[in-house]
Simulated assay, not measured.
Amino acid sequence: MGTGTPGDADLAATYFLDHDSPEVADFVARSAPADADPTTRAVALYYAVRDGIQYEVYSADLSRAGLRASSTLRSGTGMCIHKSILYASALRSIGIPSRLVLADVRNHLTSDRLRSLMGGDVFRHHCYTKVHLDGRWVKATPVFSRRLCRLYRITQLEFDGRTDSLYHPYDLDGRQHMEFLHTHGEFSDLPYDRIVRDLRIAHPGLFAATMRVVDGSLERDAVGAAERR
C-alpha cells in the first residue's frame, strides 16, 4: 500500500485494531481532550501510549489474542507491535486515519542477553505507526518509554504531529543506536501470519511455540549492565 490518500481501511476497526472495544474507548476518553483539535489529540494519545504502556520484549504475548489493542490495555505492557497497534487503534477511534509500518532494524534496544536470544543485533518486523494529519502522513513511534530511554541512555522520541518521530541514529554517548535496514511496507491491518512466520525464522531462540517471548526484563538487563561497568 502506498502513502497516498487514506481509504476506509485506514479507519476501520479490525480484530487487532479493535477501536470499537470498551477498553480502547475508555483509554481515549482518559487520554485525549475531547474538545481539542485532531493534532493535539493525536499527540496526547502518543504520549499516553509511549509512557503509559510499559515497553517489554520479554514475555510479550504475540498470539492473535495477545496482539489486540484491547489486550495490550488490559496487560499494560507490550513490545513495538503491541504499542503501535494500540496507538493506531486509538487514532482511528477519533477519526484519524492510521497505518502500521514494518521494518527490519539493527540494534533494537538490545542487551547482551537479548542479542544472544535474537541471534544478532538485527530485529525483524520492528513496527511503528503512520498518522494522517492536516492532509499528510507523519511517522510516529510511541514505543520506548521515558524510563527505558533513561536506563539505556538513548534520546526519548518526541512527537508534535507535524514532523516524523523515528529513532535517532546515535545514543547519548555518541554510539550508533539504530539503523533502518529494510521497510516491508505499510498496512491497514496487522499481517499476522506473515509476522509469525518471519519471526520464527529470524529469531527461533526468542519465541516459544505459543508465540510468547521467553521470560526476562529489559529493565533488569539495563541495571545489570550498568552494575558491571
Rank of each mutant, 00 (worst) to 15 (best):
R162S: 13
Y55G: 03
Y192E: 10
T39D: 05
R50V: 07
R220F: 12
H126G: 11
D134G: 11
I94P: 01
R194I: 12
S116Q: 15
T72G: 00
R153L: 12
R124G: 09
C80V: 02
I53D: 01
Y87I: 01
V213L: 04
L109W: 14
D51E: 05
S63T: 14
S70R: 00
V214L: 12
H184E: 06
D189E: 14
V28E: 00
V28I: 00
R162T: 14
L73R: 00
R162G: 06
R200W: 09
Y170R: 12
L91C: 04
A42L: 04
T129M: 07
A209Y: 04
A25V: 02
V138M: 10
R50K: 14
H108S: 13
T40V: 06
R146W: 11
Y170M: 12
R153M: 12
I85C: 00
V223K: 09
Q176R: 14
A226P: 01
H168G: 15
S70Y: 05
G7M: 08
D61S: 03
E158D: 15
T129C: 13
A90C: 03
I201C: 08
L218H: 07
A44V: 06
L86T: 01
L181A: 01
P204V: 00
P169E: 10
A60D: 10
V101F: 08
I154Q: 10
Y170G: 07
T210V: 07
L190R: 02
A9N: 09
C149T: 10
S217C: 02
A90Y: 06
R162L: 13
T77N: 05
A103F: 11
T129E: 11
V49A: 00
D61A: 02
E227Q: 14
L86I: 03
V138A: 06
S59M: 09
A225K: 13
D61M: 03
H132N: 12
H132K: 11
L172H: 09
E158M: 13
G185C: 01
I81G: 10
V196L: 09
V105I: 13
A13W: 01
R99E: 05
R153A: 15
L102I: 07
F180D: 06
I81A: 12
M118F: 12
V28G: 03
L199N: 11
A90L: 03
S165N: 13
V43I: 09
H82P: 05
R146M: 13
A44F: 04
Y128P: 07
A42R: 08
E227P: 07
A103W: 07
Y167P: 06
R175N: 15
S165V: 08
R212E: 09
R68N: 02
T72M: 02
R74N: 06
V214W: 08
S111E: 08
L11S: 04
D134T: 11
R124I: 10
G78N: 04
G52N: 00
R136K: 15
R147D: 15
D193S: 09
H182W: 11
D160K: 08
I94M: 11
G95A: 00
G224H: 05
P38L: 00
Y47Q: 03
H182R: 15
K130D: 15
L114K: 11
G2A: 01
D112K: 12
L62H: 15
